[in-house]
Design a protein around this nucleic acid. Sequence first.
DNA 1: GCCATCGTTCATTATTTTTTGAACAATCTG
DNA 2: CAGATTGTTCAAAAAATAATGAACGATGGC
Lengths: 160, 160
Amino acid sequence: MSAALSELEKEVIDIFVRIAGVLSLPRSVGELYGLLYISPKPLCIDDCMRKLKISKGSTSQGLKILRSFGAVNTVYVPGDRKDFFEAEAQLRKIVAGFVNEQVRPHLDNGKARMAHIDQLIAAEEGEHREFYASRMERLKGWQKRAGSLLPFALNFIKPE
Amino acid sequence: MSAALSELEKEVIDIFVRIAGVLSLPRSVGELYGLLYISPKPLCIDDCMRKLKISKGSTSQGLKILRSFGAVNTVYVPGDRKDFFEAEAQLRKIVAGFVNEQVRPHLDNGKARMAHIDQLIAAEEGEHREFYASRMERLKGWQKRAGSLLPFALNFIKPE
DNA sequence: GCCATCGTTCATTATTTTTTGAACAATCTG
DNA sequence: CAGATTGTTCAAAAAATAATGAACGATGGC
């Protein structure tokens, strides 16, 4: 039950560790999700710790992060005091949660920042003002496209 | 000429530093691109060093990374031995370069890994084989969608 | 060919990020 | 309520990542 990781588990976990890297999430978060993703039944914190050989702190913290964007759900197991966890398998939910929690704040911040830059350029006196303005226009174009790509991508990932 | 950064420069650089963070690139790489992006004329390594107050090593290394996916181009300046650099402003080129250099390798690796997992599951004897297989199917579905989203996104960013 | 200038490399140093584990708070059990 | 059991928090340690700068090689001018 609390044996070492099987070859299969190791490989699956490895995939999610890489994905975590891309998303700038700690390695342990990827490990936890991978373990739960391939687990036929919900696991408790202690199971995770033992199988992944990571500390209780990392486990608790990692599961907290995963819950924060809905990648992991808690499961009630009758007759057990412990919390049990299982991986959310609906990609759409996870992506939506991740975007809302970790991406949107940045995008919003970016917009405010752009507005400030516009002001700076308006106040600019030097010979390069036109150039600056054109660069900013271009930057706004980028932002706009990225922004409109996002909802599209979300829609692309159809409700499973 | 080698004065401190203007408010405008600082703000623009800040934007690209954030973007660098999202892409898991070093801060200095974001700084360099931002500086060049808002610079009306090409800059040499020494200009970059002085304005950003970063070391020669970081500057050289950072520009190398930026060139590797076409975010920065070298410019020939007659009568000067130094190399000069300017930001590539065509988003399409940069994204394409970045995807080819930094993203594709991972995707390819992922595919190989999946194939290996399929083998492991085929060899599986235990009662959970069906479950494992269904999880892998789901994972492949994700991979496929992500894969088909990519070319679409590239196309979405039209040739400026 | 020799000296000066320029860019790169890479071992070391600094910084940032992640993990650890012990202390704590909360909750159940009898 | 006392004693366990469970999960969380957070200061300290460890690990990973990035920056530095001196040494080096390459190139051009004289």
